[in-house]
């Protein structure tokens, strides 16, 4: 397991030993929103098959961090790469790169005018150039996997939030991505629907998917994460195991954060 406060040496060592391959790499990333310095010297690496949960108070920059990985937010300085491929600036190279990075949003963002099945089929057909039959087979298999196959012909608005989010996960998986990014996937859900989404995510994690998950779900972090990254004020303050983070957090900010979250 790679816990890298010191990325260069880690990278070198693993290249030599053939250890776990780095799937997501961020080096010296900085970003400003006007005068606000939202990401400060972010160094983060996620190995293949690893599940990293990013925690932190709101405004800490964790969503922005997630969105910079597929360039939904641009960065000012630093570098980002997926599976050794640097994040391109724009154009065809960027769309190819994004096709390999699945993303699940807080507000689901299912295509409102298309059915559930069409939502999952669209990108494999238009981006991966799959035939309609192949795209449909893949989509139905994924909908089956997330338990929505019987709703395939409905429109997103006819589904509950939890169901919509599971479709969104299936839609991202249909591109057979190398990594999956989750930007607060359960924050817009009614409490009784959180579990069904987390269950899908947990089984995905167990299946070996490389995942970066921004969330407030401490239970998921404990159960499914290999690492917990704690952010505050645009910086990564802690990068450790869930066990260590929840039992003996190293920084006062993390202790304060956990106190607020766990006390209620």
């Amino acid at each position: 397991m790679t816990i890298s406060q010191n990325p260069e040496t880690t990278l070198d060592r693993e290249a030599e030993t053939g250890g776990p391959q780095i799937m997501i790499s961020m080096q010296g990333v900085n970003k400003h929103f006007g005068p606000l310095h939202v990401l400060r010297d972010i160094d983060l690496e996620v190995a293949r098959g690893q599940v990293v949960v990013v925690l932190g108070p709101s405004g800490s920059g964790k969503s922005t961090l997630c969105r910079t990985i597929n360039r939904l937010e641009t960065i000012d300085t630093g570098s980002v790469s997926i599976d050794g491929r640097a994040l391109p600036q724009e154009g065809k190279a960027l769309t190819r790169y994004r096709a390999d990075v699945g993303m699940v949003f807080q507000s689901f963002n299912l295509f409102a005018h298309k059915t559930i099945l069409e939502n999952v089929m669209l990108a494999p057909q238009k981006v991966r150039k799959l035939s309609k039959v192949a795209a449909r087979d893949r989509a139905m298999a994924l909908l089956e996997r997330v338990g929505i196959a019987n709703q395939a012909d409905k429109l997103p608005a006819q589904l509950s939030g939890g169901q919509q989010q599971r479709v969104a996960i299936a839609r991202a998986l249909a591109m057979e991505p190398k990594v999956m990014l989750f930007d607060e996937p359960t924050s817009a859900l009614d409490p009784e629907m959180v579990t069904e989404v987390l269950d899908v995510m947990t089984s995905l994690a167990k299946g070996g998917m490389t995942m970066l998950v921004v969330t407030h779900e401490m239970g998921f972090a404990r159960r499914a994460a290999d690492r917990v990254v704690f952010m505050a004020d645009g910086q990564i303050l802690e990068d450790t195991t869930p066990e260590q983070f929840f039992t003996t957090p190293a920084t006062a900010r993390a202790r304060d954060f956990l106190g607020k979250i766990l006390s209620h």
């Binding site: 939904l72 994004r98 699945g102 981006v127």
Partner: peptide, 9 residues
Amino acid sequence: EAARSLGLG
């Protein structure tokens, strides 16, 4: 954003 994240131009 969802369209872009799926690799659509």
